[in-house]
Amino acid sequence: MRQIVPIFKREFLGYFRSPVAYVFLIAFLVISVSLAFSRYGGFFRAGVAGMESYFTFFPWLFMFIVPAVGMRLWSEEKRAGTVELLFTLPVTTLEAVLGKFLAGWAFLALAVVLSFPMALTVGYLGDPDWGVIFTTYVGAILMAGGYLGVCALTSALTKNQVISFVLSLGVCAILLFLGFSSFTDTLEGVLPMAFADALANFSFITHFDAFTKGIIDPKDVIFFLSLMGFTLFLNVVALER
């Protein structure tokens, strides 16, 4: 497992060696903050010293923005032929998968954490519940990992970044919509109730919600961690095939 370190380092610094990192970070922060200030977010109008209006958009925003980070993880290596270089170095597939995934995750976590001026603003204007803000950050970072797991997997399936982006967008959208009552109601009409309920449990929104209310429920944490574990396992299988 020692080999994870150099792979992580190369991948993480790789974001900053090209304009990708800067464009991504700026776009992410501008979009997320302007959504919070928009009429749909109502950051000021709500009159509450909290960050709920900032984080409500995260499941949506991640649906577009995480595939943008994840699509290059493997597609780029396959297109450039560097995958042949990587896998003729003394590295196991698992080490490569973990190193790359953790680098992408750390980058997304950085993007989420860079929204700290929003938290400072809230603290300056009022007296927020810092515990809730903290759990929301934890939830957002875990959710980013879940999304990224899916994107890393779809990226390993193709050397075309566009296909990788569209595939991961589709899978993430399904995982997102499973949490909406209108969507699950339709499902309940077709499928047995218990099955539809079970499906709804796979939604990002259902599991992210508790974090935004200040609760770290082990079952939500386990959901995101096991989603990552499962997608990374499939990722290894897809690469070894």
């Binding site: 190369r10 790789g14 042949e84 270089l85 003729t88 170095l89």
Partner: peptide, 27 residues
């Protein structure tokens, strides 16, 4: 072993030194 794949793929955004440093790390 040392292997030079056909058309010598390398990470384009890295400098020569950074790239060889990465290989040394992994090796």
């Amino acid at each position: 072993l040392g292997y030079l794949p056909e058309s010598a793929p390398a990470y384009p955004e890295m400098t020569v030194e950074e790239f060889l440093g990465f290989i040394a790390d992994v090796r």
